[in-house]
Nucleic acid binder design. Structure first.
Lengths: 357, 357
DNA sequence: AACGCGCGTGAATCTAGTA
DNA sequence: GTACTAGATTCACGCGCGT
């Protein structure tokens, strides 16, 4: 926990307990020629290419085997509600996505990282490759994964966060350099990218696993955001750089890490409590925002319309002829000539509950 | 040539001569998984799901078989220098991309169609699915394919055309409607999208093949841009609509349709991006101009005041006791002993975003 | 005529907690 | 595991209608 494991990703993953991590971020290799075969077939030699077609097929097949192996190993250590992120380019992301689906992962989104400052296409033979793709997937189609919808919306002018993210490359001071002044790692990712994934899909105190740790961007961001991390890296120089980098990170204060509780997590307030607290009076009439429908408040916290009675939700649905309705936001009471949503009274009560909640 | 072939795409492709088309645009079934009537909007109306028979597949394996079959058939009729475009979403695009690679196609780019006006995520459980992906691939790794680098660059303020395209959905008058006023085809694509693919990867007089012709967007745009088309469609109603539509198209003398007719709005900058860019630090305090109110910046781009948190606008309104507030002009950060409005940082970021937004 | 408001809708794997 | 129910949840456009 909160350490860099030096070694092969598969054997390191095998030593982790099952169902122990909350989120995985993986930035796997996608250069098919760069030793993928040795990683995935420890006991077999790679197949020698006999011609171009076969060579190509063998490479993709080897990459697929590698991909399925590490994805399966990650899946074992993921909690049932954990989610996984993988980043890649068109060279590998289609293989990864297919493998995810075949292994039973449930794709939640594909996210496009739009690079603010991509490398131009020097030959002028293609479109500027200005993005990379992340896949966000849960372990299975089971619900219950973490997604901080409200927080992301709040940081985005109160609009839902979209699947296309505009983020600069990792450059400048953020880019780790060796003593020779040259970049330490060829594909270091920007911390902003990691921050969005970790903020959106994990909670403070959660465990974030990165099986291809590199120079530890995942660990650095996780630590700053009050998450635990497990990093696996087989290259000693990268692992050492990651340790040093992370040691210098100061976590944000607890206050800064607070997020608003999601609506569902807030204490439940029965409508009857609004009557008991005097916010609503039995016998008064509630209406919708445009005063097109009305209902009578009964002393037991139900609403009545003619002979029908039921919960604020049921009656809200009934008067509109809809199958369902959120009565909290639908019904309003008249106060001083103006309509007040009954959800505002609920908010007041929740605020007053304080620590009792 | 320049006709709609009514019938099954595979048998129609078999009757075409080999190496006869210059470009393929394919909009295959996406294999969407959720049934009709299962997703409700917040107002309880149902989302009109794509549940047509042609989009039903028993399994990923069945979809893969289908995909490999039609891709192989297209490959046979492609000239050696021809290129192929396929569009899809995360439901199917990874299967398609893998199949392309396995069949010997050579991926040139993956292109992101960023939707100007996507459907929101109604349940707040995911990121807004705001894009679709196109794969652009040549028949093999042989060079010699068509790419109008200079033309695209000229139409993009003399900047190389990137791999992320911002184009509105097909709505309004462009969307074909039946006599009942309802959309004729569930997945009609915008002409602007087709125009970019055809302009960039084909020459006037070239033959553009679309094996899933639908209501003929590919044919309409090809004709307008002086290309020939071959469209294959198995649904008689779609084929008839396509014929009528294309008959009304007048070819352009010289194409001037390079860039999408999008309104040039100023790019929206999320407050979160200011943190990511380092203009604002998580954990610092913002104040209003007269330092009467203050709030803590959280790492997700929300502000916190005591237990409350929310967007810059929400919290600005809260501290003033007002119903609304423009957080961009209200909040300031201290820089060198002086207060700087956060809107100034936004202006800086917009300037740096250039046309990429 | 111009403007504002209400309403419809778009390739979508869209709930959680308790009994 | 299943059933039930409380209650949470939407952005950008285009069009039609009323003022």
């Amino acid at each position: 926990m909160d350490e860099v494991i030096l070694g092969d990703c598969l054997s390191a993953l095998e030593r982790l307990p099952p169902a122990s991590v909350d989120m995985v971020f993986a930035d796997p290799p996608y250069n098919l020629q760069l030793g993928a075969g040795t990683l995935l077939r420890p006991n077999q030699s790679t197949v020698d290419a006999v011609d171009d077609d076969w060579d190509q097929f063998a490479s993709f097949e080897a990459y697929d085997t590698f991909t399925r192996t590490w994805l399966s190993a990650c899946r074992r250590v993921m909690k049932p509600t954990a989610t996984l992120w993988v980043i890649g380019s068109y060279h590998n992301i289609f293989r990864v996505g297919s493998a995810l689906q075949d292994l039973g992962f449930w794709i939640l989104n594909d996210i496009v990282w739009r690079k603010a400052n991509p490398m131009p296409n020097f030959r002028g033979k293609r479109f500027t490759n200005a993005h990379e793709t992340l896949i966000w997937a849960s372990r299975s189609d089971q619900k219950g994964y973490t997604f901080h919808y409200e927080a992301l919306k709040g940081g985005n002018d109160d609009l839902q966060m979209r699947s296309d993210w505009f983020i600069p490359l990792c450059t400048g001071d953020e880019r780790l350099k060796g003593e020779d002044g040259r970049k330490l790692h060829p594909t270091q990712k920007p911390e902003a990218l990691l921050a969005r994934t970790i903020l959106s899909a994990s909670n403070p105190g959660d465990v974030v696993l990165d099986p291809f740790f590199g120079t530890g961007t995942t660990g650095a961001v996780a630590k700053r955001l009050g998450r635990h991390f497990i990093g696996i890296e087989q290259e000693p120089a990268y692992a050492a750089a990651a340790r040093e980098r992370i040691a210098g990170i100061e976590p944000l204060s607890r206050a800064a890490l607070l997020t608003a509780p999601t609506k569902r997590a807030e204490p439940r307030v029965p409508f009857l409590s609004l009557l008991e607290a005097g916010h609503i009076r039995a016998g008064e009439t509630l209406t919708d925002e445009r005063r097109r429908h009305k209902a009578l408040v009964r002393p037991d916290g139900t609403l009545g319309v003619g002979p029908a009675s039921g919960s604020i939700h049921k009656i809200g649905a009934l008067v509109q002829g809809l199958p369902a309705c959120n009565g909290w936001t639908f019904w309003h009471a008249e106060r001083g000539g103006r309509l007040v949503c009954i959800d505002d009274f609920r908010g007041t009560m929740r605020a007053g509950m304080g620590s009792a909640a």
